[in-house]
């Protein structure tokens, strides 16, 4: 089943899709696949698997730190693809790879798209490849992976339409000005802009990410989208994870987030 179909099926049950971002190999390399599967089993509909990078420009301190730990754990694209196959062998839920352009460029783009598709990845999100660089960067993808492009509530109508046209799977709407990380609430102005954005996205589902950290923030934003993405808030809890202990607490947290997705 493809990515947009999967989100659509979730939406048909009157639920918003919950996507959870985890930095691959964080905090522990050996139990990471189980950590990710437990998050999916607890109610996450999609997994965004972060490829660590030394200089993550769009990320706040929490994801920066997780990326650093993953690099110290010697996680590279090869290990991310191994996690992907392992996870996909045990779940039918979509796995989307998310990372910065340089490790992908360095791995070889054609090889990356093809190896990732072989490993079972469903899509790819590269936040520092904007729509202007799409044709050149994704030339060798040839439909192997769904490509998710990003918009902000303050993108021009022209760019929002272009992102919709180029995306497959869903459009990723960044909720705020800023890097990833927790915010307490969304302004009225932001919510209005998000509502406008959604009207312009015709071809794809729209997921909202950045700054969504709690069931409350999901409830406030759920009416304006098809799904939400939670990253830093869960990574922060993973910091406290000590070899298997604490996994149940994270599972409970994911359950709470998913419940909030079912109330709209």
């Amino acid at each position: 089943m493809n990515l947009s179909q999967y989100i659509d099926d979730v939406n048909k049950k009157e639920e918003k899709a919950l996507s959870v971002f985890l930095t691959a190999g964080f905090p522990f390399k050996d139990i990471f696949a189980d950590t990710a599967l437990s998050v999916l089993d607890s109610g996450a509909d999609l997994l965004e698997l972060g490829i660590p990078f030394s200089d993550p420009l769009a990320d706040g301190p929490v994801i920066q730190h997780s990326s650093q730990v993953a690099l110290e754990n010697k996680v590279n694209i090869k290990s991310v693809l191994e996690y992907t196959s392992k996870i996909k062998s045990k779940t039918s839920k979509p796995v989307v790879l998310m990372g910065y352009a340089n490790p992908v460029l360095n791995y070889g783009r054609e090889k990356f798209f093809s190896d990732a598709a072989d490993a079972g990845a469903d899509g790819v999100i590269i936040p520092d490849v904007p729509i202007d660089e799409y044709d050149e960067f994704y030339e060798s993808n040839r439909g192997l992976l769904d490509t998710v492009m990003l918009t902000t509530p303050f993108s021009s109508a022209e760019r929002i339409r272009k992102a919709d046209e180029l995306s497959r799977g869903f459009v990723y709407c960044v909720s705020i000005y800023g890097t990833t990380g927790q915010r307490t609430s969304f302004s009225k102005e932001t919510l209005q802009a998000i509502e406008e954005t959604r009207k312009m996205i015709k071809k794809n589902k729209m997921m909202i990410g950045f700054g969504i950290s709690s069931p409350e923030s999901i409830r406030s934003i759920a009416p304006f989208c098809d799904g939400v993405i939670v990253g830093s808030a869960i990574i922060k809890k993973l910091f406290e994870l000590d070899k298997g202990k604490g996994l149940s607490e994270i599972a409970d947290y994911v359950k709470d987030l998913k419940e909030a997705c079912m109330e709209g």
């Binding site: 520092d128 904007p130 202007d132 902000t152 993108s155 021009s156």
Partner: peptide
Amino acid sequence: GRYVPETLIN
């Protein structure tokens, strides 16, 4: 080129 997050494009 211009390899930046969408937020900076404007």
